[in-house]
Amino acid sequence: MSRRAGVFAAVWPPLLVVVILLVLWELVVVLFSIPEYLLPTPIAVGRTMIEQWPRLIAATGRTATATLAGFAASAVLGVVAGSLLSLVPLARRGIYPLTLLLQMVPLVAIAPMLVIWFGIGLPSVIVAACIVSIFPVIAGTLDGLQSVDAGLEEIFRIHRVGRIRTWWKLGLPWSIPSVITGLRIAAGLAVIGAIVGEFVGAYGGQHAPLGAIITSALKQNQTSTVFAAIAMASALGFLLFGLVNLGGWILLRRWHASAQ
């Protein structure tokens, strides 16, 4: 009962803001009679969504596949890379600064290269999603592992525990909160990476994912379709973020209990 009230209390303020914004948007478009190819009204977008629902939902499914695969890859590779960087000081000093590059390389610029390397279709989109979202995971893992309590480390040293076991029994559990923080950021980035990857790297036509739908609709001035696809992509980002939060909450329950 109180739990449901809590969820409701958390949800209604942002929901109210969204509704107000949509109403304002509708009013602005109608009052200034902005043509639909420039900015469709929310109602027009809604209509398009209903009309094209089967195509949109299938496209969302495909984009979701690429996003999830890219996100999963960056979660696993990010934790592994962050752990290796923490275990090998030389690598940390030599390689970690370079991983910053991952963050700074404009994906739009390298996406065409990914197509050359991995071909048109799912693989290059997955790689794009992974490249964009991996850095926060590496950083979160490394930060967590570097901040392990020195007193707890001493306990393991006294028992002559090796570095790998210490990582497994102490470093990794200790780092879970900051890994989760990295994954939260990565979730949103993975969607962006997948969509951008699809701009250049996805099949169009019958099996188009959201990114490809956006580019082809843009070419045909079907702006409300673009917005409908954007809405679906946002929903996807929201869903993934929610899943990460749920997973984090389950893992962190113990930590939360101990942080009180």
């Binding site: 309590d149 007193g151 707890l152 001493e154 306990i155 393991f156 028992h159 525990v161 076991r165 029994k169 102490l170 559990p173 113990r254 930590w255 101990s258 942080a259």
Partner: peptide, 21 residues
């Protein structure tokens, strides 16, 4: 200082040295 692992219950904290062995 006690230096207990915050995510382990008391029993598993106390048993840690044996577990590490």
């Amino acid at each position: 200082e006690p230096r207990l692992l915050p995510w382990r219950n008391v029993l598993r904290n106390v048993g840690l040295p044996l577990e590490l062995d």
